[in-house]
Nucleic acid binder design. Structure first.
Lengths: 223, 223
DNA sequence: CCCTATAATTAGGCATCCTTTAAGATTTAC
DNA sequence: GTAAATCTTAAAGGATGCCTAATTATAGGG
């Protein structure tokens, strides 16, 4: 049961559910289908299969969430994924996005042993290049959830994890202002339609609409 | 045509044909089936499919060999495989055999770009930990063939690549005497039933029967 | 030159993971 | 509360890659 072999595909599903999950809310299958570039029908099939295997809890019209075992498996994969990201960025000079792509390929061919060796080689990094936590081998590390920037209250700190709605994002502008992927920040002021945020490159005011599309991870110990 | 996507399975077949090939002789399908741990029927099916794709030349009762394009593809995979071997052994402290196993998993999830970056990171190694040549990205490097130790004539040098008949090999003895995987050596004397070989650890006399089971790669520029 | 051991092939299946089509269920929003 | 949008499910099928069992072809020794 511990040594159950998951197909690459199953791993991808579990990982994606872990990634998309927002707190304890189940992930809508439509979201999964989109992320995995697969038809909704396939996702439905797969989720029911994973439920039969005790890895996923699937409630029709609600969505999918992970069982403790599913969580454990997702962590194993995510650990490998993020360790490779660190290696690719820090050692091989990859840009983050390319590293992410490549890590998707490598994670499935990585044994637990290899992950541990890599972890040691990289000097036990605690986060990936975006500042997202790398699960420990024991699987104890809880994944921290990401929120839209708008959910962060004044005085809280955090860092940027992802841009949600690519088309709307002035990437270059944000990069210049120090609010790019991985950037730490602190919310200084919020108003009804904008936020003032402190970044490594100074202060930047962000429209609320835009802030909605910026996913961030709040700093440990807040909320 | 250049960007043709090979399945993991196809890659394995091509790689194995390249590995098992002895000079220009086609590889018997039974041998392939054995190495790949797959039924002869499956190998037959696959070889005919690869032939249809122009990657393999398959002659019933003779065996399979690579077309120039198949050769090119095999080189690409082999390059990745051996680069990973170097990384795993040199950087992560793997033993060779474990590195070989792990490299089998990693090679398929490795893009050409990643291979090049890794190559650079490792400072362009020319051989894997066993001294086998790492093909260059341009695919120009010919694979050197391996021979049984008995085929090496007096004065020639080479290095050990593989033990063929595991059950017959006194591994510990050979390791002690400096004739283990990767060891460089020079043949000093051959008689009708034994050979005297110089190794990093001194000289060792090897019975002809035993020498047959030791695969070696002769040094560049000989023969 | 025949006979046998080995190799090849055909036929039928299985598992995985994906697809499209189409019909039915539920939610959500007005 | 109903209608539109979304989700679920069933059915049928395709591609890959593997299997076993049974049959046929061939090579090579005697």
């Amino acid at each position: 049961m511990n040594t159950k072999i998951l197909t690459e595909s199953s791993q991808m599903y579990l990982l994606e559910i872990a990634r998309l999950r927002d707190g304890d809310a189940p992930v809508p299958l439509s979201r999964l289908a989109e992320e995995l570039s697969v038809s909704p029908v396939s996702v439905n099939e797969m989720c029911r299969k994973l439920q039969k295997q005790g890895l996923v809890i699937y409630r029709p019209y609600k969505g999918a969430s992970l069982t403790p075992e599913g969580e454990r498996q997702a962590h194993r994969v995510l650990r490998k994924h993020r360790l490779w990201e660190v290696f690719l960025v820090k050692e091989l000079g990859y840009a983050y996005e390319q590293a992410h792509e490549a890590a998707c390929q490598l994670e499935h061919g990585t044994s637990d042993l290899l992950a541990d060796r890599l972890d040691e080689y990289l000097d036990h990094p605690s986060t990936n290049p975006l500042g997202q936590v790398i699960p420990r081998p024991d699987g104890e590390t809880p994944l921290r959830k990401t929120l839209p920037l708008t959910e962060i209250s004044v005085g809280q700190e955090g860092h940027v994890v992802q841009y949600e709605d690519d088309s709307m994002i002035p990437r270059d502008f944000l990069r210049e202002r120090g609010l790019y992927l991985g950037s730490p920040f602190k919310v200084l002021i919020t108003t009804s339609d904008s936020m003032l945020v402190e970044t490594p490159k100074g202060q930047v005011s962000v429209a609320r609409d835009l802030a909605t599309a910026i996913s961030v991870e709040p700093e440990k110990g807040d909320e």
